[in-house]
């Protein structure tokens, strides 16, 4: 029982957007898909839900193919980000119609939840998408994702347009739905800090490759920030995986990723501090800028 993709390659105009991605999404978990803009997050979610064809590789749900397989597709909902600029056809569509079509296509659509969410978000469904702001569009994608009741549900940047109060509201609603249903959610976001505690698993996508797929807690615990005098820090972290080095005068700070069993040398005069998911992510994926 899992949504599995193997050796996924996606090429656009000769450029690899995804490079040999293999992933296994287990039921009943909240995954965070984090990566910088252009890392391939939306493309990966599109391929997992058969909305885009992969150049190479396969996606299967419980062993059955997802591509052109209605039985599998019915268990997946990828609520896309709505881009209602003047050019897109969807700008002229009313929110009401979009939700009606969604409720036709998702077998287990939760009508009551839809009504509740519309009330919570205070949405006017008679409005056309072209007249809605980014926050309202995010709310619509959230409603489709939660009400679809699909066992595997993907949300692409669901909180991008929301203010801080609505973001908190969203995470609470997500947890409520997750606790009561045990569905699998994959949430892509680059606003990491707020999401960190919600995500049981974290998948870090960097330049089309999966860098990390781990338990969020385990991953965060494996990263520490070590700082002090340059020589002391160098000695303390010798032989460890060091990222994101910053030096000011005689002082140095590094982020270290510890493998099981490894430890920072405690005999040295250095400060060892825990690191947040966001800091760990920046240490891993932001190195080009640091250099």
């Amino acid at each position: 029982m899992s949504l599995h993709c193997e050796n996924i390659v996606k090429t656009y105009g000769g450029k690899d957007v995804l490079y040999d991605v293999t992933l296994d999404l287990k039921p009943g978990k909240i995954y965070g898909l984090i990566g910088r803009n252009g890392a391939g997050k939306t493309t990966l979610l599109s391929i997992l839900s058969a909305q885009n064809p992969a150049t190479k590789g396969t996606v299967t749900l419980d062993g059955e193919p997802v591509w052109e397989h209605r039985k599998s597709l019915a268990k997946i909902c990828f609520s896309r980000e709505l881009n209602a600029n003047a050019e897109s056809g969807i700008a002229a569509m009313k929110a009401k119609e979009y939700l009606r079509i969604a409720s036709t296509y998702y077998e287990d659509w939760d009508k009551d939840l839809e009504g509740r969410l519309v009330k919570i978000f205070d949405l006017n469904l008679k409005k056309k998408f072209g007249k809605m702001n980014k926050g309202m569009l995010s709310m619509i994608t959230i409603i489709v994702a939660l009400c679809s009741k699909a066992p595997y549900t993907f949300l692409d940047e669901p909180v991008a347009g929301l203010d801080v109060v609505a973001r908190e509201q969203f995470y609470k609603l997500l947890l409520e739905e997750y606790s009561s249903s045990g569905r699998t959610f994959v949430v892509s976001t680059h606003i990491i800090e707020e999401a960190a505690d919600v995500l049981e698993k974290v998948i870090i996508l960097h330049e089309g490759k999966i860098l990390i797929e781990a338990d969020t807690q385990t991953f965060v615990d494996s990263a520490v920030h070590v700082s002090g005098k340059i020589e002391e820090v160098d000695a303390a972290v010798a032989g460890l995986e060091v990222h994101h080095t910053e030096t000011v005068g005689r002082s140095k700070g590094v982020t270290v990723f510890l493998k099981p069993g490894q430890k920072v040398d405690e005999g040295r005069d250095v400060s060892v501090q825990p690191v947040s998911l966001q800091r760990a992510f920046v240490a891993l994926c932001g190195e080009e800028e640091a250099k």
Partner: peptide
Amino acid sequence: TNELAKLYTINPATAAK
């Protein structure tokens, strides 16, 4: 676990741990 998860906006698995 679920009450704690909602109160603190954390994953229920973390609360359970």
